[in-house]
Amino acid sequence: MTNLQKKSQWLIQHFKKEWQIYVLLAPAMIWFFTFLYTPMYGLQIAFKDYSIFKGIAGSPWIGFEHFQTLFENDDFIRAIKNTAILSAYNLLFAFPAPIILALMFNEILNQWYKKGAQTIVYLPHFISTVILAGIVITAFSPSAGIVNTVLGWFGVDPVYFLSKPEWFRPIFIGSGIWQEAGFASIVFLAAIAGVNPSLYESAVVDGASRWQMMWKITIPSILPTILIMLIIRIGNLLEVSFELVILLYQPATYVTADVVNTFIYRQGIQSGQYDLAAAAGLFNAVVAFILVMTANTISKRYSRTSLW
């Protein structure tokens, strides 16, 4: 019996024995195939002069012309720059927020207070982004917003926060943290719960304070989880909460708020330039792919933790 025959026989036996597992896996595979792999066929329009009348197959190939157009477009360059800046801020402020929150929750000894606090910070996650944006817009409103009302108490004139480009980034990052930090902290709380309690007991006997235990036991113990979440985050770095940007930005703040995805949305959906938008989207995906590969390799090399 050849190796190939042996392998195929083993495979048949394996399927017969474990078919239930594959049945359970099937819906996810079908979903991935239908919504993530099938549309990849359409990616080719990034290299074509696409016409909806000629269809994808019938449209002529034009090579990298759309990419050239994109990189000659100042708006696209601005969108890349904004995406990079917002991503960096996200990584700098929004990524550590749930970790800090989880560490703080872990230090709360009163169970009632802890559960109450957790529920309060989880809630914004369940609010629709549209409603969240509505709350933000209302809160920062120059006429009736709470922020301007409070500033008014200190004699500060109303600030038109949402129409000033310099305020877009702090508001965007802040509202993102408010919405997601609590819910994202669950992963880190679970990681903390998995830390062997005798490590803490041993440290207590050795004389460690709570602060020392947090730095020397909790954080190093959850580091693999932090790294995995970081890699996943880096993979989604260029997404920068597209819906929230769309809902919060306005032409006056494009200079700091327009990101690659909003650019794609405007070009593709609003202006009907599907091929150009596909090129921008492909560029986004390639950069994200490189980022996640790089992060994974670095993490694997230095911390033995990786996604694959």
């Binding site: 062997n196 041993s202 207590v204 004389g207 460690a208 036991i217 190093p220 580091l223």
Partner: peptide, 20 residues
């Protein structure tokens, strides 16, 4: 407090810090 009792304890599951 445990740290001031001047005792040292060896645990069943060793309680070694995996990152050190």
């Amino acid at each position: 407090s445990p740290k001031d009792r001047d005792v040292a304890m060896v645990f069943q599951n060793y309680a070694l810090y995996p990152h050190l």
